[in-house]
Design a protein around this nucleic acid. Structure first.
Lengths: 297, 297
DNA sequence: TTCATCGATAAGTAACGTTTATCGGCCTGA
DNA sequence: TCAGGCCGATAAACGTTACTTATCGATGAA
């Protein structure tokens, strides 16, 4: 039993006429006879009574007609949905991000996207870099934005922008602003750090290590917002992404510190799967990224 | 797009592996590649991401997987139902009858049938002979039982039994029983007749005509029951099928009259369509008829 | 680097569906 | 009553389709 059999059968059942069904299906009459004969063989029952000048349905034929209509309707529906998908009328994008770009870079961009592509289903998720990259590899996510190099080379990386790290302290201790901290002073600070899996934390630790700074005290907070709050509250100093504190520096909620050594910069990458065929929703997102970030070219 | 495409695609999507899908479908791996390529062409979208060592679904693929499962489930369901029908696990019979056999011959037989074939849908309908025969021709009915020859030769006729007509009168006028009525006496009777389209009525009219009896008064009643009630109430005499009055004669509700001329007999036929393929339910009914009526052989 | 895995590709072959031509049955109308 | 037309079945030839085996190229693992 295949779809041609069913289409032919439905035509014959509705027209009650082999030859007319044949022209309706754009085939010759013997082809219809053959199709019906095959179908009857495959279901093991006569479907049609061939009385002279009168074709009628057997019980089996009526049952099969009902089912055939159901099947063909399901096929039509499938074609319709595929057309919607391939024409870009509907779509879905599952975007991931690490905390810094997810909280400070993407929200406004996603708002633009949602506005101009309301018909697409937009899913967004923030997570640790490793987890996000793994999900892109497994195709649980379509693409992801992360700060710093991902832990894998399986994915395509496109540069979105370059991000600086900056040192910040509480606004109340403004006297230190623009003042070089001596290294013992840096050791003595309480360093506010991101959670263990954070890229920022790894970069900060590498920097501290590189300059022989051994913090006397550290405190760990989950996410850039929590780090900022801790700094604002005077709990210590921190090295954070400039992206996360531009507003706060302007508003003088925190002040920038000059630690005496240059702080690293890092790259914000867009990750996606090199072998993946992007649908309309993903292509639109790529286009938006490329329009927003000249670096991406 | 055909069912093979969909089955192959579902196998690949579930196993996420072309070669394993191939062996699951009992075909070679290139056949699977080919099927998927064709399917992607026919829906106009890539369905699978072929990353090295990792096959995953595109958005279009996920949509189609959903639809393909729906379609294949509908096909399975169709096969199941067809199997039920052709194995005789389910069935349907639409039986028609004219008034006399429908009211006096079939009810007990249908009770037997329903008891031994509860799984079959039994539909029964009483109507005028012309209408019933037409419905059998159009395959609105599977078969029918009628008294007397049908108005068409398009249908197969099988003899069930021979039925006598008998003349009856009200029980109170018992003196007439077994007494030859003179012909003027017959003319003078009020004749209770069946409705115009009744076979019985036509036979009675032919008989009256043949013997030169011209009823002075006639009354028409719809159906054999109404005729009997009219006779019982003393409204007149009637010629009716013996089938309809056997009980009433025994119970002395009516008496049999001897009108001096032999009354005709007629045959009760089973009608069905000569080109029709009977399902299990109809075959069972034919078997029951043939067991019940030795005439049918 | 070498080997194994995996999907794509090529070429040959087998199977299938469709076509034209024709048959046989049946109904219709002169 | 017979000729003509309608209708579905059948036969043979043809073209297409879908499968097979063999092989390639790319990729990852040992």
């Amino acid at each position: 039993m295949n779809l041609t059999h069913l289409k032919t059968f439905v035509a014959v059942a509705e027209l009650r006429h082999f030859a007319r069904a044949a022209s309706a299906c754009n085939v010759s009459q013997p082809a219809v006879s053959h199709q019906i004969a095959q179908l009857e063989d495959s279901v093991g029952a006569k479907l049609l009574n061939r009385a002279p000048r009168r074709v009628s349905l057997t019980v089996a034929g009526e049952v099969l007609l009902e089912e055939a209509r159901r099947i063909l309707a399901a096929v039509d529906r499938a074609h319709e949905r595929m057309h919607e998908v391939s024409s870009g009328a509907v779509g879905r994008i599952r975007l991931g991000a690490s905390a810094t770009p997810g909280l400070y870079l993407l929200p406004s961009l996603l708002a633009d996207y949602r506005e101009s592509h309301a018909r697409f289903d937009l899913q967004f998720q923030i997570g640790a870099v490793d987890e996000i990259a793994e999900r892109v590899i497994r195709n649980d996510l379509d693409m992801a934005v992360i700060a710093g190099r991902p832990p894998t080379d399986e994915l395509r990386m496109q540069t979105l922008l370059h991000d600086e790290l900056v040192a910040i302290g509480a606004a109340g201790k403004a006297r230190r602003t623009r003042t070089r901290e001596s290294q013992p002073g840096l050791d003595a600070q309480c360093w506010i750090m991101r959670e263990a899996k954070s890229t920022t934390r790894r970069e900060v630790e590498a920097w501290l290590n590189r300059h022989g700074i051994v913090p006397a005290r550290t405190m760990t907070f989950d996410g850039p917002d929590a780090v900022k709050r801790a700094v604002t509250a005077g709990l210590g100093i921190a090295i954070v992404s400039k992206l996360t504190v531009e507003e706060d520096l302007k508003a003088r909620r925190v002040v920038r510190l000059d630690l005496g050594f240059p702080l690293p910069t890092r790259t914000v990458y867009l990750l996606d799967h090199p072998h993946k065929h992007h649908g309309a929703a993903c292509s639109a997102m790529l286009k938006l990224f490329s329009a927003t970030f000249p670096e991406m070219r």
